[in-house]
Design a protein around this nucleic acid. Structure first.
Lengths: 230, 230
DNA sequence: CAGTATCCTATCCGATACTG
DNA sequence: CAGTATCGGATAGGATACTG
């Protein structure tokens, strides 16, 4: 049914047959964002089942969009890397994302708040440059959420690597950001700035780091896209 | 299930939720190509059921991609026109089609030969300029097909309007093109030229019109895209 | 012609359990 | 951790018949 062919020679049809399967565009988005490991991909599509992710990855492999490399014979762990055909999907993801940013009402998007997904996205796009040239620890707290989902820590290494933790790493905190999930998501999506929502953010810790939050906080890749709806 | 939300605030996810439903990209392709009537849309997606097309059109309307206008209160016939949000989908269709043209093997596309679909596409993109400035009639014949699917007539009006007929309009023929469906599809897709497949084409009628076939025969919008696979 | 309503089935997909 | 195998239910959507 849903996967049977459209039976059209048209390149739009042939491409859509592959790209428009359920979840596929989001898996591709993750791969385009540079994620290569199965469980990291899962963090980007947490509502997708493991088995379906495995199926989609195999389909992408069959279609020549990704290559599966065995990382260790011991563990049987794979790495999934885009082929040239896969890297060429960047314009597709951009076109879809730009359209969504421009035309999907924020009221609809903001129904889908998800702290762990937001933090996962944020950890990928954070810009270490404005931060001190040492290991930094920044905690985000969403008091509205159930205890297990309230706290997240971003560890920014001097190398620029950013790690996301769900448990307190234990060393000295540079900044604690306490806010509501909706405000933080709006800022990440470019729907508002740190300035504009300043009164909904509680920043405690290093004043310099707090003052520069809008700069080190990398936004969504689609944040610069002009919006045409509320 | 398949339509239930991805539950992600990401604009790629929000857009994909709408755009990546089964058949949706092809319906949008037709609308972008300028088709506005239900049964004309059906000709562009002949394998899609009527009821599903109606459903998809309603969804596009709900999402603000098209507007439905009642053409006649008598008949209850509607016209479907893209809104500004809908016209903004052109880059999405282009990105998908370009990727398909570049990376889908022609061996796969050419499994989906369909004469009526090909002729419907051709009638849309034909360029009347190189033809004589009078009404012209060009017949295409695919002898390999069952009798009912063998013959198609393109009527090119002096105004530039092109009509596709399945029955002989009866007036004088300017050119009869007899060929196989695969060759004609390859030419339309830009995989080969009239010159290259000259020996598989039988052209009888006006010599001038025959000689200029590659020019008046408009190709697929994706024909110019460079291919990277066989 | 231009759709709409209904029914039924294929199959997609999520849950669960299992393996190296 | 990194997946794979299996099973059952939900549902998308095709077929058909119907209406203005």
């Amino acid at each position: 049914m849903a996967h049977s062919s459209y039976r059209q020679f048209c390149p739009v049809a042939m491409a859509a047959e592959i790209l428009c399967r359920r979840w596929m565009m989001l898996v591709i988005r993750e791969l385009v964002a540079g994620t290569t490991r199965f469980n990291d991909l899962r963090r980007g599509v947490p509502k997708m089942s493991r088995s379906l992710l495995a199926t989609r990855l195999r389909e992408l492999e069959d279609f020549g969009v990704i290559e599966r490399h065995l990382l260790s014979h011991q563990s049987g762990v794979h790495e999934y890397r885009l082929t040239e055909a896969g890297r060429d999907l960047v314009p597709v993801v951009e076109a879809v994302g730009n359209w969504g940013q421009t035309w999907v009402e924020s009221r609809l998007s903001l129904r889908n708040l998800d702290a762990s997904l937001l933090m996962w996205d944020m950890h990928r796009n954070l810009d270490p440059a404005p931060l001190p040239n040492r290991r930094c620890l920044i905690q985000f707290c969403f008091p509205e959420l159930p205890p297990r989902q309230q706290n997240y820590w971003l560890v920014v290494e001097p190398s620029g690597d950013v790690e996301l933790c769900r448990d307190d790493p234990g060393f000295e905190l540079d900044l604690l950001v306490t806010t509501d999930l909706r405000s933080m998501t709006m800022i990440w999506m470019g729907l508002a700035t740190v300035q504009e929502l300043r009164e909904r953010l509680d920043l405690s810790g290093d004043r310099e780091i707090a003052a520069r939050m809008q700069t080190w906080l990398g936004l969504s890749p689609f944040a610069p896209t002009e919006r045409r709806v509320s």
